[in-house]
């Protein structure tokens, strides 16, 4: 619950590099249990890099990432996932050489509480209908559904979601929004990277504004509504 004072994710002075180029210049923010926090900002501000750094999918990183009191900065990607963080990347990363069913059941059950294959296909009936087709045959919306669905198998209660609405038709975006809200109701903690302000506004408890690889502001939903112009300059729209 938001009233819980102790953050479950605490990011301090996080810096990250891809080879020679520096992507993050000292990120500081935290996330509390059950919260839905968005990272907003321009393209290239470092939102995706933040998620990738938390998962350890960058060239090099320094600083501190504490998750439920454990330091993740020295851990490998699979160990971080085993700590209970699930990651859904921007490109959805549905495997083309795997069928829909194989994609769905690929992530292992890491802890109790993960959805069973049956639950998953019940929750996403259209994926069940297409379970035998190749992963690349799905539409963008179906791919996004699949990308979210499969990580629910692991039982992780903390989810990093990178731009689920990107490139999707408004009606699909709405469905995805409903899914995300349902996850939030079920007590999942979610960090959401989002460019679509309308979408972000509907679901988030808090907005962390990222610029040049740093956090420059934190906004409540009220701030966002009250001062939309300021927010729009942040986003460069």
């Amino acid at each position: 619950m938001p009233s819980d004072p102790q953050p479950i994710l605490k990011v301090e002075n996080l810096e990250a590099w891809y080879g020679e180029s520096k992507a993050l210049h000292g990120m500081n923010f935290d996330v509390r249990e059950g919260e839905l926090v968005t990272l907003i900002g321009r393209n290239g501000a470092g939102k995706t890099s933040t998620l990738r750094s938390i998962m350890g999918i960058v060239g090099n990183r320094t600083g501190s990432i504490q998750f439920r009191g454990k330091e993740l900065i020295r851990k490998r990607t699979y160990q971080i996932a085993q700590e209970g963080i699930a990651y859904c990347p921007e490109e959805r990363a549905i495997f083309a050489s795997l069928s829909v069913a194989e994609n769905m059941t690929l992530p292992p059950v890491l802890r109790p509480g993960g959805l069973s294959d049956k639950d998953l296909f019940e929750a996403f009936p259209n994926l069940h209908a297409r379970r035998k087709s190749g992963g690349s045959k799905l539409s963008g919306g179906e791919q996004q559904m699949l990308a979210i669905a499969r990580i629910l198998r692991t039982g992780s209660r903390f989810i990093l979601l990178d731009e689920p609405s990107e490139g999707l038709a408004p009606v699909i975006v709405k469905q995805i929004g409903t899914q995300i809200l349902r996850l939030k109701e079920q007590g999942f903690t979610i960090v959401l990277v989002e460019q679509n302000l309308q979408f972000a506004r509907l679901v988030a408890d808090r907005h962390v504004v990222v610029e040049n690889g740093q956090v420059v502001d934190t906004l409540t939903p009220e701030d966002l509504s009250a001062d939309l112009d300021r927010v729009k300059t942040y986003l460069g729209v």
Binding site: T77, S97, N103, L106
Partner: peptide, 17 residues
């Protein structure tokens, strides 16, 4: 097959790639 396509994503599922 999945790790062949995107090893980092498979690893992000908690698999020791």
């Amino acid at each position: 097959r999945a790790a062949n396509e995107r090893p980092e994503i498979v690893e992000s599922f908690g698999i020791n790639v």
